[in-house]
Design a protein around this nucleic acid. Structure first.
Lengths: 230, 230
DNA sequence: CGCACAATTGAAAGTTATCAAACGTTGTGG
DNA sequence: CCACAACGTTTGATAACTTTCAATTGTGCG
């Protein structure tokens, strides 16, 4: 096992720090400020100056944008290894709120940019992460624009399930820390429609809800089919 | 006016080539292969190996993803200065088809990656472009998930109008090279709903259609209001 | 000029949203 | 430890918006 000088971060293999040599990792870790936050806390506000870039090390967050009348679109849920803080015109493009008590690695953006000039690997890594994020955003556009309520909910559960499999290949019970209302705002549906769709999937036997905050996947193949309308 | 060694590209101030010194620009231009394509041609196919990165120099394209049953989501329209070819797992994440006869600057991905190792400014520039793209994708998620048909169409026209203003600050007539069906697949609507909404906006006097393929903006402020439901 | 295709308009149907009420869960204070 | 309040979830009935299906009109091109 290679020596890991960044003692602040237990998810470095999937984070910004990945693919850096020991020296560079050390320089990056010197910039990092560890921060923890409680459920409900707002970490960044849309349109505020984008002073920091964050890396999630534990817990979960939601990113969202608002319309003037309060309608909300959640653009993503963040889990350990994910980053946030991408900006346009030096302002955040979304707000971020904690869904599940979390810890974050915070980097000053100017300092990080300075380090990136010295360590091209770091910029390369960030480019990869942002590119992946963009591909996922396009997948989400397909969901929002063209899928039915059932396909949306099935896709959402499937994505969480696959993420969970990557961390624990034997798991069948998937954590579901966000509310129905959050899920609705992520999928472009109302709370009620999300709830009804969960009920329908339970009735079909595709999923069960053993405990609040978890989904159990009984029929992964059927879930897959439902998620793209096969 | 600075010397521009990349004679292939008339939009370099907004493209990949921007912010490069003369030497680096020369090295980049040596990698570029100029290519032109006719309306209807498919330039890249979703899930094909991502061998190239493209920069649009003239014309227009659409990027799209398909569901198994043929439902289509257009994830973006590309105009001069835009790039395409971002990938995940070394495969394209979308297909690209020409909307209006276009010219492209094509870069071999491995060669470009090699050059990026030598020229960090280039990678920096690409990171900026991808980051902006991500912000726009999140804005589109808000549109797809939470806006009404009228808000969607008004937002779409407004975005085209603003892009057109940037190129020609006095223009009130905006080119609209894509079909109603393309617009529908971009906004998560049917052709019929798009057409009906255009008719309603004409009736209100917000827009006119002087010639096929163009929209004239009569009331930019009202358009702005309609686009976010004020 | 006429054919093929795109755009528009109309009528009916369907999916999802809205409004409303009941049920569960969680956390707190008596 | 229980009771209650507050909040989130579920379920039902109705309404609205958008889609679907169908027909007509308009446009571009051979």
């Amino acid at each position: 096992m290679p020596f890991k000088p960044c003692d602040k971060c237990s998810v470095s293999e999937m984070a910004l720090c990945n693919a850096l040599g020991c020296d560079d990792l050390k320089r990056l870790s010197e910039l990092a400020f560890e921060q923890s936050a409680q459920k409900g806390e707002t970490i960044i506000n849309e349109a505020d100056p984008a002073s920091y870039l964050f890396n999630v090390t534990s817990g979960a967050l939601k990113l969202y944008k608002l319309l003037p009348d309060g309608r909300r679109q959640i653009t993503g849920f963040l889990f350990p290894g994910d980053f946030m803080g991408i900006a346009m015109n030096d302002c955040y493009a979304y707000s971020a709120e904690v869904v599940e008590n979390c810890t974050l690695c915070r980097f000053s953006r100017p300092k990080l940019e300075k380090l990136m000039r010295d360590v091209p690997d770091l910029e390369h890594r960030l480019l990869n992460m942002v590119s992946n994020e963009l591909v996922l955003a396009q997948e989400q556009m397909l969901l929002l624009g063209r899928k039915t309520a059932q396909e949306k909910v099935a896709s959402f559960i499937k994505t969480l399930y696959e993420r969970s499999l990557r961390r624990n290949p034997l798991a069948t019970s998937v954590p579901l820390p966000m509310s129905r209302s959050d899920i609705g705002d992520y999928l472009g549906l109302t709370t009620e429609t999300v709830s009804r769709t969960f009920s329908a999937l339970k009735k079909n036997g595709v999923i069960s809800i053993p405990d609040a905050g978890f989904v159990q996947i009984n029929d992964p193949d059927e879930l897959e089919d439902l998620s793209s309308g096969c």
